[in-house]
Amino acid sequence: MIGTSRRGFIGGLACAGGLALSGIRPAAAGPALAAAYPEILKFAVTRDGSPLGVVMERFGPDGADGVAEVYIDFVVGFAGIALYRYEHRSRERWRDGRLAALDTVTNDDGTDQAVTARAGSDGLRVDGMQGRLVAPADILPSSYWHPRFVEQRRMLDSQLGRIVEFTIDPVGAETVIALGRPVDTLRYAMRGDIDLDFWYDADRVWQKMTFTIGGSFIEYTRIAPEPGDAGRFRTPLRDGRGLPAA
């Protein structure tokens, strides 16, 4: 893709990836995070049916806290040439059911981006690409895994460090293919800066996502993690940047 259509697709894909791109039960924190979700939640991502990349999220305890990590790697190519590349790494630290800290780094086709956030007495203090802000203490980041996400009307954009507002409503019960088998889910429609559809199972574990951007249909399908996937979370971006030490 070239010109305006390519730019529109890239911009939308970056938004969806960074907003992508958080399941704790609403009151869960710390080690309960590991029990609430599988260790690694992995999605194969396609563009118009062709492989685009992967999104993975890893969950586990760290003392009294819970930690969620995100790994995203997308490549738009043509004839073996990478036309666009998107990489994102993030780490969320959860304490007493709220986000206590967030660190992210992103390579948006050569554009370096980073966000840091720390809980303070006045809310979540965020340093992002658009400056500093104080977000509500109970805000969720844009990683989509948290079961309370479907109850939200705003979120913290993990790629840019801005607050995004939207609506999200249930569409209805549907059966989707996840982990290679049929899964009963409830579909939700998010409408705002970008329109997304999500599918969560009865425990609100994220199973699927779709959206259309720049004339291309993007689909996230849950698949089983592979040996070695855990090691990919700590790999730096291709520009050498990585997350700060935990």
Rank of each mutant, 00 (worst) to 15 (best):
Q130L: 09
A173F: 11
Q159H: 11
A27R: 11
L13R: 05
L41W: 06
T235I: 11
G97T: 08
T111E: 14
Y37R: 11
V54E: 11
A178Y: 12
L186Q: 15
R91G: 00
V55A: 14
R162V: 15
Q159E: 06
A44V: 03
P182H: 10
D197C: 10
G17C: 04
A224W: 00
G214V: 05
V171I: 12
T185L: 00
A34Q: 14
V205W: 10
Y71R: 06
W206I: 00
P244L: 03
T185G: 00
V126G: 12
T111W: 01
A36N: 12
Y71S: 08
M155E: 12
D184C: 11
A114Y: 07
T4D: 15
L179I: 06
I72Y: 13
G30A: 03
P141V: 03
E69T: 02
P61K: 06
V150L: 14
M209K: 15
G77I: 13
L237Y: 13
R204D: 13
W94P: 03
D62L: 12
M155D: 05
R187A: 02
V171Y: 05
A245H: 04
W145F: 12
S50G: 01
V126M: 04
A101I: 01
L102E: 05
A44K: 08
G63W: 02
R234L: 11
G228V: 07
W94A: 03
V164S: 11
S50E: 08
R181W: 13
L33I: 11
K42E: 06
W199P: 00
G180N: 10
P225K: 00
P136M: 01
A202P: 09
D109I: 10
V134I: 15
L124A: 14
R132I: 10
L19Q: 14
V70W: 09
H88N: 08
Y71N: 06
A20W: 09
R98A: 09
G240S: 07
P61E: 12
E174T: 11
V115C: 08
D103F: 00
V45C: 03
G242K: 02
F43S: 11
F166S: 07
L21Q: 06
D203G: 15
I40Q: 01
Y188E: 02
I2D: 14
R93L: 04
P244R: 06
L156E: 04
R153K: 09
R85P: 06
A36E: 15
A68N: 15
Y188I: 02
Y86T: 10
R98S: 13
E57V: 13
D48I: 01
A173G: 07
V134A: 04
F59C: 04
I81D: 07
L140Y: 03
F9Q: 11
Q130P: 01
Y37T: 07
G123F: 02
